[in-house]
Each structure stands twice: as C-alpha cells, then as structure tokens.
Write a protein that binds this DNA or RNA. Structure first.
Ligand code: FES
Ligand code: FES
Lengths: 168, 168
DNA sequence: TAAAATCCTACCGTAATGGTAGGAATTAGG
DNA sequence: CCTAATTCCTACCATTACGGTAGGATTTTA
C-alpha cells in the first residue's frame, strides 16, 4: 500500500502544478481542495520543500509553490523522499541496501530473482513519469472519458492468462 | 516490502518443488535448509495447505508435499493467500476493493492513474510466473553465473534515463 | 506405547502509520 | 508598530501490522 503521505503529496503536487501561475498557495487552500487533513499536509509540504521540490513564503500572501518545472519532477523521487525506498526487499534497494540475513547466496535467491523484476518494472514507471506527464494524463482522462485506453495504459499483451483479469 | 511470511513461503515452495520425488518433508527439514524459524514456517505451511497448494501427512514419516504441479502454481496467488492483496491502493484491488474516501472522481485521480500502471506491471510478473518457472530461473542463475542477463531479466529498454540505475 | 510429526489457539514486543496539539518565527498590510 | 496570516518545528498519541513464540492437542507410524 502506498502510504497516505505519498498519496497526499502527489495530489498536492498535481494541484500546485495546475496553479503554477497563481503565485504561492497556502496549505489550507490545497487541503480544502483535495480533502486532506490540514496539519498533516502542512508537514508533508514542509518535507517536500526541504527536499528541494517546493518553495515557501511565510506570512500573509505566503504559501507553497513549485521550485522546479513539472517536467523535471520524477514521481519516484517524490515517493522516496516522503516514504523511503520502495524496494520490496532490502537486498534490492540501492539507496538503503542491506543483506538478507537468511539468504545464503544472493545471486541464486528465488525470492530475489522474482522481486527484482517487480522492482525494476515499478521503477521504470514511477521514475519514468514526471509530474508534467501525470498532469497530462489526468487531463486526458478527464476529457477522453469515453474513448478506449488512452496513452500508456494498454496492457502490453503478454501470453493471455485467463485469470489475470479477476484478481487483485 | 514483501513480508517475511511470503518470502519464507516462496523459499519453502521452491524447496518442495525440488524435492517433489522424496515424499513428504517435515517442517523442521525445510526450516533448517532455508534458515527459517521453525514455528513460524509451521504456521505458513499450514496456511498454504489450507489454501490447497500443499498436502500434509501427520505422524512419523509425515510432512508437507506439493499438491499440484509446479507449473500450475502462480506466485501471485501464493503471496495473496499469505499476505493479502498487493494492490498499492484500495481502489485498485479487485478482490478487496473499496473507495478512497478522499478522492472525488476515481477516473481522474492522479494517484490512481499512476499506481494503476505499477499494479498492472506487478501483476503481470507475479501472476505470470509459475513456481516451475522460478525454479528454472534459480537453476539458470546457479549455472550461468558468468553469462550476461539470463532469460527475462533484460531491462526492456525504454527511454534511457541516466539516473535510473542509481536509486532504489 | 512412545515418538514424531501436524494442527490449533493464544499471546507478545516492536515499529510504522496516520495523524493531532501547541506554539514559535516570519511577513504583509494597515 | 500592531495584527493577522502564514510557515515552521517539536512532541505526542492511538491503532494496527509484523514477526514471531509458547504450549499443547491430535494424529500416525513403528
Ligand atoms: S531475499 Fe534478499 S537475498 Fe534472498
Ligand atoms: S487513490 Fe483511489 S481513487 Fe484516488
């Protein structure tokens, strides 16, 4: 499960990307628009600022603003900054690697072989998607409500396995 | 993070797939071979049996055994049975779906649009891989230690993004 | 009948999650 | 210079999930 912290952050960032022109936006405004607990969002945006993605200004007319262009914000970095590494195994994280005590040989570990693929696929998506791209996809989804499969959502047809559509 | 429960389960299943011919194998044997806490593994194998993947026999000469062919065991089902649905968002799980209270419109939710891709990619891997295939990959990794990229591990080259190799 | 195994229930310490409370520091406008 | 709006910072807290452990009941073979 993607933690609330990251979900709220993504929503806030999309919102900020949309209102880039409107100058700094106060936490309360974003929280109201996106139905996020104010004090919690406050803490989140602060972290986002400390990690360099946002700028802030205090006092009246203050608020938060994107520091960099949405095209340069990789969503994976956002998630990582707030919720830590997302590797499904300690031995698969580059930033927080540590050995799996129980595994004798890392190169022939079945669990690792399987999850390495999962992790790679995840990274390709979250790090390959920028904030700008995400905003674009939301727009596409909002307008093209009736069309078939927009953009990259196509299942990428592998061997058709009957059950795959009915579980999780 | 993939829970220990699932990691242990996968290891045990690979072990059992290897020793299919040797008749029922006691928990203690697997636990020793794979460095898994005995009582914990006991509970895991019991669950695996109750979900139909394993057979058990009690008393001396008893133990656990695969009930079905390794080719028919989808790894995704194993993980789900032990650790619940793996959808990164409640609104993405088919088996345990429930609305994300805070999100107004599900079809234009940015978080959902992003994570749907992640989830789909994950499912394609874990449900597309059988126990037999995993055993085969372990064997391949064990023998072909020096060769380049065995089987499906290839990065599937998308747009080369310099940083992707240095994080998580 | 003794030993080896599965089966079952209950418990338990630790850490992460998803917040809340309260206030200090900064800044704009009057 | 005063007030109100805002960010900033620290501390706390309730609930849950995780990773097991303990102890024994039941079944089966030899
Ligand atoms: S799970 Fe990390 S090495 Fe086996
Ligand atoms: S995250 Fe589920 S609908 Fe927005």
């Amino acid at each position: 499960m993607l933690p609330m912290k990251s979900r709220y952050a993504l929503k806030a960032l999309v919102f900020l990307a949309r209102h880039q022109a409107d100058g700094p936006i106060p936490v309360a405004g974003i929280a109201a628009a996106e139905a996020i607990p104010v004090k919690f969002l406050e803490a989140i945006l602060l972290e986002l600022r400390n990690s360099g993605i946002l700028t802030s200004r205090r006092g009246p007319t203050g608020g938060y603003q994107l520091r960099v262009a949405p095209q340069t914000v990789h969503l994976g970095d956002v998630i990582r900054n707030l919720s830590g590494p997302m590797a499904p195994l300690p031995c698969l994280s580059k930033s927080a690697y540590h050995r799996c005590g129980e595994c004798v040989d890392e190169t022939t570990c079945a669990v690792r072989l399987l999850m390495a693929d999962v992790h790679a696929a995840t990274l390709r998506i979250v790090d390959g998607t920028t904030l700008a791209a995400l905003v674009a996809r939301v727009d596409a989804a909002a307008s093209g409500e009736a069309e078939g499969q927009s953009q990259r959502c196509r299942p990428q047809e592998g061997p058709p396995s009957a059950k795959l559509d009915f579980i999780d």
